[in-house]
Design a protein around this nucleic acid. Structure first.
Lengths: 371, 371
DNA sequence: GTCGAAAATGAATCGCAGC
DNA sequence: CGCTGCGATTCATTTTCGA
């Protein structure tokens, strides 16, 4: 994966590079609808009264506290709206975004996401296994951060690698609370003086789960607050293209150096478990055409309550019903729907076997078993 | 603790009673600055569309009550602002509030809290030990809800019983993520027909921790969305006074009956909440996310007969098999099952080490167990 | 009555290709 | 765009049912 662009000329998309500058300006200079996923770790410098520009030069006193508070939130909300608008413009129609934050800013970010038209899919809690304790004993140990996962629009066909995430979790579907350690040890980048290079460097494990779960190899991942480049590093390892935006030259330098040393995992390692949905559709009629089942042969329901006969056109008949394997199953069970493949069984040498076994045989013969 | 009032005459504060009516109107009729703590479980504005069926075709009993439906985000925001204003007026200067919600509403509620002048102290995550799964495999299991804890003002001397919470947590500082089961079994209130009396009854364990941590005996606790009265029940057990507001006569009736049977400080009932702790499950995928093992790296079987490769989703591949560490081990050995943790080894500096060593490292780091 | 199997259930924004 | 119909999808617990 080298530095490159997708498309040439004015609409060129700079890939696997760190772009310098203010993220809103840079995002607005990139072609719209070109990014699959955005991961954003925005700053949350709320309540920094010195940063605020008051419209008049009025004196700050106790009476103005409410105004200051309001002005501070107001400023932050305008900033949030601006970068979210720019981010949304860059997303493909089926693109999605992740934003991470703490209670200082995440509620404002979440509300802004909804106001801008994003559709929240989950909020995910990063539960830190080794958080900093609360030394003063005046509050709960701040042991988590919150991430919001949202699609560009309601109804978008967002990417969700359900089976891969289930595999990562040893066969149980992934929950909205993730237990992962904070970034320490050799993973934590240091500057020349041996101090941490960035105050809020995110662990690669967090990005690994985000990118395995919500992107595919070859996707374009944008991080508008790139920092020291965790998003880029994990994207590179996983064979995704990245675009980083960072205005601080010091962070950019650290990130550049970091990315040089990252190697992509080999092709086989990047293969992940896929869902049945991705496998080719096999019409039931093919089992008859191929002679695996014969017209006139009997099928039995999984619960052994019903028997039906196969007709030459691949429909079933019996119990005063006719129709597809799914329609007849649903009707007999009084259910709104039914997966006929797992509902109906045939007999061979005294054994009762689900017809789905035959479908799997055909798919195996087709060769492109994705799993 | 009997039904009574604090102060006499016009400013009387009705204690340990359920007040009927709209919570905003009722709150505005009560004397200002008279309440120590507010616990609020407002409507979530779930915005559900069609029906949802489980894989076994049974229908999920969704929250489709009229009280949870709002015309728009704007309508919901106006409602939130109004009840928060009324709530804040009732609080004593050093009072505090808890609000619980999900991603549908919590970001709007959190932003509104900040806008109204509340000062957020923590967001606390209720991690459900037995949440409803995601039936369609399209998102993460919605396994948590979020609570926001805020003082009336910045700088308020709010109540926080640090040591009591530490004791509740077996001597370890209480974190911002709480693992508790959802409300089921005997605790779940039923109506005459045996159906759940309220669709969103909260577990007493949750309120127990909230009230032990942020109130003292004799404090006045207000719940403006009283429902079937979990807040009142736990307040009564713990020797706090409560004020409930509920507009639905059916819920009020259930709550009245429930509260009659509650006795203050039932030692036995409190001990039920201390549950046994199992060793936390560590999915194999975490070793990859944490960088302890790399996708593409080779594992060798304990008997050195087989070698396999690790994939990015934590599955193994090799010898024409794919699957979890347990599945692949069992298949290669022709055994019905296999403990992959002790079967597979990795190499470091020439040494062959069982992967279980890495799992033990993670468990040691977790220290404060997640369950 | 007892034990094991089967059913029930919980704050849920829960398809999608092909015509 | 909307409609039709295939067919993919669940975890922890409690409660009920049946032998």
């Amino acid at each position: 994966m080298d530095t490159m662009t997708k498309k040439k000329g004015a609409d060129a998309l700079p890939l696997n590079r760190i772009l310098a500058g203010d993220c809103i300006e840079v995002m607005n200079s990139l072609p719209e609808g070109s990014v699959d996923l955005i991961f954003a770790d925005p700053p949350y410098n709320l309540q920094l009264k010195g940063d605020l520009h008051r419209p008049d030069n009025s004196k700050v006193d106790a009476v103005d506290d409410a105004w200051d508070r309001f002005a501070s939130f107001e400023t932050y909300d305008r900033f949030t709206e601006a970068w979210l608008k720019a981010a949304r413009r860059l997303l493909k129609p089926n693109g999605a975004i992740w934003v991470i934050g703490s209670y200082h800013n995440i509620f404002r970010v979440g509300a802004a996401l909804q106001n801008e038209g994003f559709w929240i899919l989950n909020d995910v809690v990063w539960r830190k296994s080794n958080p900093m304790p609360n030394f003063r004993g005046k509050r709960f140990t701040n042991a988590h951060e919150t991430m919001i996962w949202a699609s560009r629009d309601e109804g978008a066909k967002y990417t969700f690698n359900y089976e891969a995430l289930k595999s990562l979790n040893e066969g149980i579907q992934m929950r909205s609370d993730w237990v992962l350690p904070i970034c320490t040890g050799h993973e934590r980048l240091k500057d020349d003086k041996g101090d941490k290079a960035h105050p809020t460097q995110k662990p690669e494990g967090l990005l690994h789960r985000v990118l395995v779960g919500s992107t595919n190899p070859g996707d374009v991942v944008l991080d508008p607050f790139f920092g020291t480049g965790t998003t880029g590093a994990v994207a590179k390892m996983l064979g995704r293209d990245f675009i980083g935006i960072e205005r601080d030259a010091g962070y950019r330098a650290v990130a550049e150096k970091r990315l040089e040393n990252i190697r992509k995992y080999d092709r086989e390692a990047l293969q992940v478990s896929t869902s049945k949905r991705a496998e080719p559709r096999v019409p039931f009629g093919q089992l008859i055409e191929r002679g695996m089942l014969r017209p006139g042969e009997e099928l039995t329901s999984m619960n052994k309550r019903y028997k039906v006969k196969i007709r030459a056109d691949g429909t079933l008949v019996g119990n005063d019903v006719k129709g597809s394997i799914h329609q007849v199953g649903a009707h007999l069970e009084g259910a709104p729907s039914c997966n006929g493949w797992t509902y109906w069984c045939f007999k061979r040498e005294g054994k009762t076997i689900p017809i789905d076994v035959l479908r799997q045989q055909i798919r195996a013969e087709m060769g492109d078993r994705p799993n």
